[in-house]
């Protein structure tokens, strides 16, 4: 079965490359590089140490933005359970506003406010991912099984321990879902933030290549971008999912 799937995947990729090559050859356009040109440009980037500085910078900004965005989202999400006022604010104002506001608008606003710096991409990521965490945790808080909290409170009056041992573990699957979509979105948002608001990083390099009409380089940077995203999704998240699915699979079906 697995073997069969591999073949199909390989065939699909081969067909995609063939089609790309065909269009590139037929259109004969210097702004449409062939797969070979792209791989060449990719190789040039790979052997240049500077590339990794830019990738690292982008990574660093993504992580800080994610940490900030997830913290804010989680705090807002949890607060809805304990305060009706916060629940209304979150549902009526924060969620619709942040959900519908295009990431590029945040990027532009932050460029004007904070100029070309680390702050612009970081804040862009933060504002884009916070709603993911907020809405998932909010849902998790709604689904919380109060009978388990009651069970725990027959043994202790220590509320912080009940939070740590009973309430937070119930939220882990929701946190995982939020992290998954959050990381994907953050990775796209950081490029936007860097495209307009930075003088280094993958987004900035993409912009440079674009401005110099180096289409094969634009494609090559995009390849880097996709490869890192796929590694995260397939390796990191799949690993976590496989490791914890036995524990978690029943939590959400309560």
């Amino acid at each position: 079965m697995a073997k069969n799937t591999w073949w199909k995947a390989a065939l699909a990729i081969a067909a995609f490359i063939a089609l790309w090559w065909f269009i590139a050859e037929v259109s004969h356009n210097r702004y449409f590089p062939t797969p070979l040109d792209t791989v060449k440009a990719f190789w040039d980037l790979m052997i240049s140490p500077k590339t990794y500085n830019h990738i690292w910078l982008t990574f660093y900004r993504t992580i800080i933005g994610l940490l900030l965005g997830s913290t804010i989202g989680i705090i807002l999400g949890i607060s809805t359970k304990y305060s009706e006022f916060m629940d209304t604010i979150v549902r009526v104002i924060i969620y619709p506003l942040f959900q519908s506001f295009p990431p590029i608008c945040w990027a532009l606003v932050f460029v004007l406010w904070f100029g070309l710096s680390n702050v612009t991409p970081i804040l862009t990521i933060m504002t884009v991912v916070a709603p993911f965490f907020m809405i998932n945790i909010w849902e998790g808080m709604k689904d919380i099984d109060d009978t388990l909290i009651e069970m725990a409170s027959t043994y202790t009056n220590k509320r912080f321990r009940i939070l740590r041992k009973v309430i937070l573990p119930m939220l882990y699957p929701y946190f995982f879902d939020a992290s998954k979509s959050g990381v994907m979105t953050a990775w796209k948002a950081v490029i936007l933030g860097e495209l307009y608001g930075s003088i280094a990083g993958m987004g900035y390099m993409l912009n440079m290549a674009f401005k110099a009409y180096h289409m094969s380089q634009v494609f090559a940077w995009t390849m880097f971008f996709v490869i890192i995203l796929v590694i995260f999704d397939k390796v990191f998240f799949n690993f976590i999912e496989r490791k914890f699915v036995r524990k978690w699979k029943t939590v959400k079906s309560f």
């Binding site: 009651e150 220590k158 041992k165 524990k247």
Partner: peptide, 21 residues
């Protein structure tokens, strides 16, 4: 109802009264 914590094994469920204190 049993009210067991579904993410914990049987023994860890039995030990929860200690862990809460």
């Amino acid at each position: 109802e049993p009210r067991l914590l579904p993410w914990r094994t049987t023994i860890d469920n039995v030990l929860i009264p200690f862990e809460l204190n």
